[in-house]
């Protein structure tokens, strides 16, 4: 872990140095040196513009992702547990899982208008299907002898579900939630760029079309940092819920 962290840091520093050199030597507006990006970032931070937009974006992200986790896990559990539900839904879920969600944005505008509801819907749609599919797969892959063992010792249906199937499927559910988090961030930026120009997405469009590349990259970097932090948060929850599984993976 420690050596991994060290290599990570070395990797980032190397990239930063190369970028700075490239920016300085090319002296082009297309590739601003890192130092200019940093000062733009500080400028945006001090003006409060970045934080205000970021908060707006994060609120969309949180709401859409939260809904996606609730709906995705419940639907996935039902599909994994009941054949009829699975066969009723799997065609749509599998299609939508790989469909380009961006294509649905115009329809969402018609249904939900141009407010935050539409943006939440986009985040939701980006994230939900991968959660459904991973949850369903997790439930279906639960070792049948665990269920048999539970029944043999007199477990009722609810006990089989909550004490055996749910914890056994938890690693797969969390894997789906992790993937869903990544997709939710993509959904957030997509919604803000394509739907209504708000939040972080609006800043990207604005600086991009104004050739303010230093500010543009400052915003992009912010998005990367947000993506990384949200990912780490989900990983921490995963570790907390399914620490027993990670231990197996390490050995």
């Amino acid at each position: 872990m420690n050596s991994q962290l060290r290599i990570n840091v070395i990797s980032i520093i190397t990239l930063a140095i190369l970028w700075e050199i490239a920016g300085q030597t090319l002296d082009s507006v297309l590739i601003p040196p890192l130092s200019k990006i940093a000062s733009a970032w500080i400028r945006l931070l001090i003006s409060g513009k970045l934080l205000a937009n970021l908060l707006m974006s994060l609120w969309t992200l949180a709401a859409g992702f939260f809904l996606a986790v609730i709906v995705g896990v419940i639907v996935g559990l039902l599909m994994g547990r009941f054949r009829a539900v699975e066969h009723f839904l799997d065609l749509y879920i599998n299609t939508l899982m790989s469909a380009p969600m961006t294509a649905f944005v115009p329809a969402l505008i018609l249904w939900f208008g141009l407010g935050i509801e539409s943006r939440i819907a986009v985040v939701f749609l980006f994230a939900v299907f991968v959660i459904v599919i991973n949850t369903m797969t997790g439930v279906k892959q639960v070792d049948r002898t665990f269920v048999e063992m539970g029944r043999s010792f007199g477990a009722r249906e609810a006990e089989v579900f909550f004490k055996i199937i749910l914890p056994a499927a938890m690693p797969a559910i969390m894997a789906g939630i992790r993937l869903g988090m990544g997709r939710a961030v993509k959904g957030m930026v997509t919604a803000e760029m394509l739907l209504t120009l708000t939040g972080i997405g609006a800043m990207i469009m604005q600086y991009g079309s104004a050739f303010a590349t230093d500010a543009l990259f400052a915003v992009i970097l912010t998005i990367l940092i947000v993506a990384m932090i949200t990912m780490k948060l989900v990983e921490a929850v995963d570790q907390w819920l399914t620490g027993w599984k990670t231990e197996i993976a390490i050995e």
Partner: peptide
């Protein structure tokens, strides 16, 4: 036969 111990 496979012990059926719950890993968590």
């Amino acid at each position: 036969q496979t012990f059926a111990l719950l890993p968590w």
